[in-house]
Simulated scan of single mutants.
Amino acid sequence: MTNELERLAVRLREFARARDWEQFHTPKNLAMALAGEVGELVAEFQWLTPAESADLDPRTLARVRSELGDVATYLVRLADVVGVDLVEAAHAKLDESDRRYDPDLYRGSARKAPPAAP
């Protein structure tokens, strides 16, 4: 994990420990909380046009920023609890996508690649 993500994970770990919340921070509970926060983030964009979503007014941007903070917090906490290095996992996923989506075949296309071979 990068230094900043590791610092955040440690701060979240200490935050939970100080409040005796570790008992509630099971992978299941954290994943469910993360899904709820993603839902709140999605709700901020739900009725916006594509143009509006690309140019948020200051009040909406403040709410989006807050929801992104919630999403990031739960994601980092979940990764810490299950022992996954988020940066490493993201790089591995990008490497896989790089193999699956040849730029010459997928440039400008939103179509999905066939499932990766096991």
Rank of each mutant, 00 (worst) to 15 (best):
L105T: 08
R111E: 15
D57Q: 14
L8Q: 14
E52H: 12
R59H: 14
E4F: 00
L86W: 14
A92C: 06
R63N: 04
S97R: 06
M32L: 13
D102H: 03
R111Q: 11
E88F: 11
E37H: 01
G39A: 12
A43D: 06
D70A: 01
A113C: 09
D85T: 09
V87K: 07
V82I: 13
G36N: 11
A54F: 09
A54E: 09
L86Y: 14
R111K: 13
Q46K: 04
R59A: 11
A54T: 09
V10S: 00
A54H: 12
A113Q: 04
A89V: 13
R99H: 13
R107D: 13
D98H: 14
A43P: 02
R13N: 02
H91V: 15
A31R: 11
E4V: 00
A16K: 06
A92L: 13
V71Q: 02
A116T: 03
L68Y: 07
D57W: 14
K93F: 08
K28N: 12
P27M: 10
P115W: 12
L56M: 14
Q46D: 06
H91R: 15
V87A: 15
A51M: 06
S66G: 08
G39E: 07
V38Q: 09
E37I: 03
Y101H: 13
D80K: 15
T26R: 00
Y74G: 02
G83K: 12
V64I: 09
T26H: 05
